[in-house]
Each structure stands twice: as structure tokens, then as C-alpha cells.
Design a binder for these strands. Structure first.
Lengths: 109, 109
DNA sequence: GGAGAATATGTCAGACTTGACATCTACGCA
DNA sequence: TGCGTAGATGTCAAGTCTGACATATTCTCC
């Protein structure tokens, strides 16, 4: 993990605190974040494919535009549960989920 | 979905209510439950492989024996996040997660 | 360069999840 | 039978997540 990646994550709203705390981020935390980002990308792509706005998708899923934005940004306030449920409600299959998880996350520059 | 499966799920603590409500369970809900059960099985198998008791694993993960039991039972009070985090903390890789998700759930008898 | 649509960000009350504890059941063994 | 260990189940205060709303920013045409 490096500075570039740190910037990406902080930009996405993860409160990583001091460098010390940052270095203390466990592998598990990092893996969870990456996993969420993969699902977040999937939500955005599925929405695009359907040519829906965030507002429309929010209505469709019984939620709001702002939460769609947070989901797609991988905001820390969004759980894996919510991401998975949303994808499934958009009609994705378990197979699709697995495909998205298998797709490697963007490497830091 | 059939009566056998329903019995399995209710046994596991899912409050499915009347048949009407049960039939109203959406595909998304069912998919989420199956997914959780797959992860739950994975937790139990990983723990067995390490020859740990639920108490030991609980201590290891900073949690309790009772939560380990609930996790392994796929209890409704357990989130996908918790299951995933637990597996990762046990040293599982993203690849492992995917393998477990890809493994088909037990079919109703 | 301004209007309107789409998306992003901040906040919060209410809902849900968590670790912890107490208690209960099931099994093995002497 | 009684005891010790492992696992299951119920409950709850404290913590986290959710949908909703308000507001801000970015994008896209003209």
C-alpha cells in the first residue's frame, strides 16, 4: 500500500487518520474496502447499462439518490449487505456477483 | 422454493411468517439468505480445519462464542459484512471468498 | 456563461447489528 | 449419574447503517 492508494481512499471518505494509524490498517480492513469498491463499480456499471439516473435507481430500490451516490462511491457508511442486496435487486445473479468480485481492483498508479 | 427449504430456513431462525408472506419473499431476499448460508458454512469449515472451538475463535476475532454460533448458523442478526470480515481475519483471501460463494448451496431434499 | 439535469456531500432520527452475558441443551466419559 | 466441555439461544445497551432531506458541485447543452 502506498501514498497514491491512500489518497484514493481518503478521497473516497475513509477516515484513515495519521500515518501511524494508516499503517495500522489491517489487511482485513484493506481487503474489505477493495471488495466494497469492486461492488460499487458493479452498481455503477449496471445502472449505466440500464441507462438510469441515480434518482431513478433510488426509486426503483426503495431508496434515495444520495444513497445511490454513496453506494457508487464506496462510502464507508455503505455496507456490503446493501451493495449486494442492491445488485441482486437489479436482477444480478449470484454468478454475476462472483464475476464482479473476481475482477481485480484498479491498481494504484 | 418448497416446504422443505422453508423448514430449513425457519429452523435457522428466519421469521418467514405466514405462507402468504413466505411466498412474497423476493428472489433477492432468498439469494441473500443463500449467500449468507454459504459464508456461514465457510466459517465453520475454516474453524474446524484449524481445530478451534467457537470460544477460541471468538476471542481470536475479538468477539464472543455466542456470536460465532450465530454466524455459523446464518442467523438473521448476522450481516454479510461480519461474515466476510471474519473470514478475511481468519486469513482467507479474496480468492477463497469467491470459491466459497461459487460453491452451490445444499439443495432442498 | 447560464439554466437545468445529474451527481456529490453533510446531517440526522430511526432501524438494525454487535459484543457480551446468562442460560440452556447435547455429548463424552468415568 | 454427575461433571466438564462445546455449542445453541435469548436478551440488551451501545454502536453502526439506512433512507431521507437539504444543499453543493459538476456536467451538458444552448
Amino acid at each position: 500500500m502506498n501514498a497514491e492508494k491512500r489518497r484514493r481512499l481518503e478521497k473516497a471518505g475513509w477516515k484513515l487518520g495519521s500515518t501511524k494509524e494508516f499503517l495500522g490498517m489491517t489487511d482485513e480492513e484493506e481487503a474489505v474496502i477493495d471488495l466494497k469498491l469492486a461492488l460499487a463499480r458493479a452498481v455503477r456499471e449496471e445502472r449505466s447499462k440500464r441507462k438510469l439516473t441515480q434518482s431513478q435507481l433510488g426509486r426503483l430500490l426503495g431508496s434515495s439518490q444520495s444513497r445511490m451516490a454513496k453506494m457508487e462511491a464506496g462510502d464507508p457508511s455503505v455496507s456490503i449487505d446493501l451493495l449486494v442486496r442492491s445488485l441482486l435487486r437489479m436482477g444480478a445473479s449470484r454468478r454475476d456477483l462472483i464475476r464482479w468480485l473476481a475482477r481485480p481492483g484498479r491498481k494504484a498508479a
